[in-house]
Design a binder for these strands. Structure first.
Lengths: 184, 184
DNA sequence: TTTATTCGGGAATAATCGTTCCCTATTATC
DNA sequence: GATAATAGGGAACGATTATTCCCGAATAAA
């Protein structure tokens, strides 16, 4: 079932919620219609489960990327780099469920809207905490406004997903180098 | 007819393409079904016209915002500020047709995908030209990488639309101040 | 005044959608 | 070994969708 849900994640990422029919879903999950409705109440429930699964995986990916840095500054850099890499190429073309939900659903479904906000806030808090770590270990100047910078970095990461989905090429080294000026 | 198209823009911005039914469209445009199909070939044609109208208006809005600056640096700042203002509050909640098209349609409709890319590139080139103006007039250091910075700023603007649609509050002064560090 | 013609309106249509229902294996229980 | 329970599959259903067709009013032409 988990592997079927992974396939659902993939379809929703590629086609979005509304453009994904039950037929698309069953084909991707390799399950019959009845089986899907035995496991989930309705299409929305499949999406919610897929969203949950996607965000959990993404969370551990960025946490583990951060963990490889030796100080706050390096950890922020690694998070940014990880985001660029996931927004690039075929993976980027696949899209992000958080961005997709924000654009397509948050205005129409308040519960999904709340989950999107929660996810954004969680990521923002994580980045802000990394910045403060850097200020404590001396790798980031104390003059940096941690909260505001974190919020702008969230905008950068979400914007990367949009641009990557649109298939504009993203050069990781250059973009990260420019973005790191925000920690000067 | 132009006023009807403006209303179509509004619905598509709020609900996206797939979640907007012909019924939603006729109600918003205050036109009957037959009248819509007399003016446009199909729903997609309405969307294309709405997209065109939206991008034209947005383009003049950001150009005129830029024009009020006295040097390159101020013009970039004005563009960023304009983007934050349009991404904030009720206007931000309404959403952006470029971001919406990128997320919902660019993978499914190559012509719309091409228009999204063209729009992003146009905005990026405009920002890059403002940066170069600033370097010429001395308000921006020559060490700034114009193209890379412009691309990152496009990510910021698109990300602002995502975050604004999700209803996270955006503080214009603070965000713009942080972003301007990219021109240091 | 009468006759075309245009324009907006809305019912009818055909396709597609999400959902439900029922059937058939397969596994577990007694 | 017989039976109950479960899981999966797919046809059938009703609702909704985009689209087409035709009607009536208003305007222009004769």
């Amino acid at each position: 079932m988990d592997t079927a849900l992974d396939r659902a994640v993939r379809v929703f990422r590629e086609r979005g919620y509304h453009a994904t029919s039950i037929g698309d879903l069953t084909a991707a999950m390799r399950l019959a219609t009845g089986s899907v409705y035995k496991a989930f109440r309705d299409k929305r429930a499949v999406f919610l489960a897929a969203f949950e699964r996607y965000t959990a995986r993404r969370q551990e990916q960025t946490r583990s990327a951060a963990a490889e840095g030796n100080n706050g500054r390096e950890r922020v850099r690694n998070v940014l780099r990880s985001y660029v890499e996931h927004s690039r190429g075929s993976e980027g073309r696949r899209g992000c469920l958080v961005v997709g939900s924000a654009i397509e659903l948050s205005a129409l479904d308040s519960e999904i809207g709340a989950r999107v906000i929660a996810q954004l806030r969680s990521n923002e808090n994580f980045i802000a905490s990394l910045i403060r770590e850097g200020q404590a270990d001396g790798s980031i100047p104390g003059s940096v406004a941690a909260d505001d910078t974190a919020r702008l970095m969230i905008c950068i990461t979400q914007g990367l997903r949009v641009v990557g989905k649109a298939r504009l090429p993203l050069e990781a080294d250059r973009l990260v180098a420019v973005a790191m000026k925000l920690l000067a």
